[in-house]
Amino acid sequence: MTPASISFEGASVRYSGASRNAIENITLECEGGELVVLLGPSGCGKSTLLRTVNRLVPLDAGRVLLDGTDVTQLDAVELRRQIGYVIQAIGLFTHMTVAQNIAVVPRLLGWDGATSAARVDELLQLVGLDPTAYRDRSPNRLSGGEAQRIGVARAIAAKPRALLMDEPFGAVDSLVRTSLQRELIRIVRELRTTTLFVTHDVEEAFRLADRIVVMRLGRIEQTGTPEELLAKPATTYVRELVHAADEVYERYYLASRERLRGSPP
């Protein structure tokens, strides 16, 4: 499928019993194929914003548009089958094999067994795992890094129009995280899937993002490329978060970004 644009227009969410809106009047455009990182501390609303796209969280005001179509105009279940979803806790189905996990959405969409099976092998290779060794394995017998590779494979199995990732690499150690980040960059480039990626890790944001959206207390502080955030932080909060004007950090972040992404294609 062609990558979809995602637009938020004045999106607000208030959870019942909360004293302020979880997200407040968010307006944001993500182009098709873009990797946008939502960056901020816990409680800033970044996960809530992410989950409004596949309607796991309903909006109280505003709209979310997927390729210009208001997501509330679509059937929620059909919508979710077109959008990949990866979460920190991974949530592999432990009563299924690795292959069955990856094939969940293809099967929901009614792909036949042979097509699904071929896709499973293709995806295992894409995420760097040997199909013969992993296909029939139980998720209980995977390391954290392996499990999240399967989580990513499951999310992109049916060639989604967009990919939502909620702190996907937050639970793995830094070495594994780096290799997962590198592969994500490669996969996203290959698939050209519009990706929203939530993290509180500044370095991770700098490594992965085409554009970073800095959030705080349910609002957007600033939207910009990594270079823009460093060069022109819009608020004190952003400046302190990214250590703008600190040459050491600036060089560190940009070098980290370049190392991970390799030379641009």
Binding site: V77, I83, I87, A89, I90, G91, L108, A155
Partner: peptide
């Protein structure tokens, strides 16, 4: 496991 239920809903199970 809440993560499995979240994943199931998010992936588009009814």
């Amino acid at each position: 496991d809440a993560a499995q239920v979240d994943a199931a809903r998010g992936l588009g199970m009814s």
